Amino acid sequence: MEQACDRGGRGSRRPNGSENGGGELSAPRLRVDTPERAGLDPEELQHLVREFHALTTGERPWAPGAVLVAGRGPVIAVQEASGWAVRYASYDPEADAGVELPPEARVPVRVDTPFDLASLTKLFTAVAAVQQIERGTLGIDARVGAYLPEFTAAVTHGITVRELLTHTSGLRPELPLYDCDDDAGRLDLLRAEPPIGVPGTYTYSDLNPLLLQHVLERITGRRLDVLVRDGITRPLGMTSTRFGPCPQAAATEDQRRPWAKADRGMLRGVVHDENAWALGGVAGHAGLFSTARDLAIFCRALLAGGAYGPARILGPDFVELLLTPPGLGFAIDQKWFMGELAGRGAAGHTGFTGTSLVLDPSTDTFVVLLANTVHPRRRPPDNTPRANTATRLARAVRGT
């Protein structure tokens, strides 16, 4: 199997570097098997697969390419790829259409094709933070200013780590860091940015995981990409998950103004998010690339209380902390993309490039849908396919 984004071998170590010992049994690894073995209704899953393949067909498909992995317990019951990882050479604004590559130059999607995860990166930042909370090196209700005294706005307004993890800091959704010419200017903007909303009130913001990244890097002395690799992806054997560049990833956008915030041309293998790009590709809110199978492992580990195979990345109590409403980094019961899986404690997230994952502890199910909906140009998001996919999985559980 192609490992386009491999950055190291497998491991089985705890976040603190110790082996998963103490007599603890290994958690089951994922395997591909029948819907019946997964405890899922095969007819509902057949509907799910047909609807999935329809997402990449037609002149204006929902996405040029997509990969779907879904299952229950340790069983992957659906693993499908459809469409094109690279279909367009550019975007033609006059025709409002993509300029298609000749068939021989297009790149088909495979089940192991990496995608730009966009905001799914936030989930890994959240897990890295909860790992530090578990160690006792980070206080969930500690003030950010206690770790970053030079972040004057956070100090003045008493922003806490919990507020960053729950998007209740009052910080605006984003800052135009991509317009700064140097790292010092970008850092000055972050340090001086005050809340514009009422603290304690939910306002989704990329600035929250960006500040959290600085906290984590300060208290550990390690970069976020190293924390994610050593604490999450390497122990779990997620060998195709890494921060970019990732040359074999599905293409994203022909990024040009005025529809984008920078003039970068057709993007493939480099982060789509303009702020993450300006920050060098490693950011708390965006920058990771991964495959659907790797993300299924991530979901399985959380559903199993933080363990996968011989590795444990979190203790069960801290997984519960992560996934208890309102969720630390994870969205909980968001019906607009979770469909009928919502309402039971399902957790997940979406990414601007067309990515999403949902895991439902109440039914032990997970679904990962990766797509390049912004290829060749971003458009208003249509979350109906995400919600429909989750609903089909929920009905497959009920139909058994």
Rank of each mutant, 00 (worst) to 15 (best):
D254L: 11
Q213N: 07
L207G: 02
L210W: 01
L288F: 06
R186A: 01
G287R: 09
H214K: 14
P209R: 03
M238I: 11
E253S: 00
H272W: 07
G244H: 01
P199I: 12
A251M: 08
D263W: 12
H272S: 08
F243G: 07
I219Q: 05
L190V: 09
A278S: 15
P195H: 06
R191H: 14
A260H: 14
L227T: 06
L236F: 11
G237M: 13
A262L: 14
V198L: 14
R191M: 14
R242Y: 01
D254P: 03
G200A: 14
G284I: 03
I232A: 02
R218W: 04
D188C: 07
Q255F: 14
Q213E: 13
D183Q: 15
T220A: 04
G269A: 09
W277Y: 15
R268W: 03
N208V: 06
L267P: 05
T239D: 11
P195Q: 02
V226Q: 11
Q213H: 02
V228H: 00
R222C: 03
L211I: 15
H285T: 07
A184P: 01
S205N: 11
V228I: 15
Q213D: 02
D225M: 02
D183P: 01
W259M: 10
L216T: 04
L267T: 04
P258F: 05
L236G: 08
V271C: 05
F243R: 04
T252L: 12
R234Q: 15
L189F: 04
R257K: 15
V270N: 01
A184C: 03
Q248T: 14
G231A: 13
G200V: 13
E274N: 08
P235G: 09
R222W: 02
P258D: 06
D182W: 09
G287T: 09
D183F: 12
N208W: 01
D273F: 00
R223K: 14
L211K: 06
G280E: 05
R242K: 06
G221M: 06
L190F: 04
Q255N: 10
V198D: 13
V282S: 01
G237E: 13
H214L: 14
A250K: 05
R264S: 08
Q213R: 09
W277Q: 08
T239C: 10
L207M: 06
G197S: 13
M238R: 12
P247Q: 09
G281A: 02
A278G: 08
T233M: 12
L212N: 00
L227C: 04
A250I: 08
G281H: 02
M238K: 10
P209Q: 03
L227P: 02
D254T: 09
L227K: 07
G231Q: 11
P235H: 07
N275E: 09
R242T: 14
A192G: 02
T201E: 15
R222S: 13
R218Y: 00
D254A: 13
G237L: 13
A286D: 08
G265A: 13
P235Y: 11
P195T: 07
C246L: 10
R264C: 05
L189T: 01
A286R: 02
Y204D: 07
E253I: 00
A278D: 09
T252C: 04
L279P: 00
E193T: 15
H285L: 08
R234A: 15
D273V: 03
T220H: 02
D225S: 07
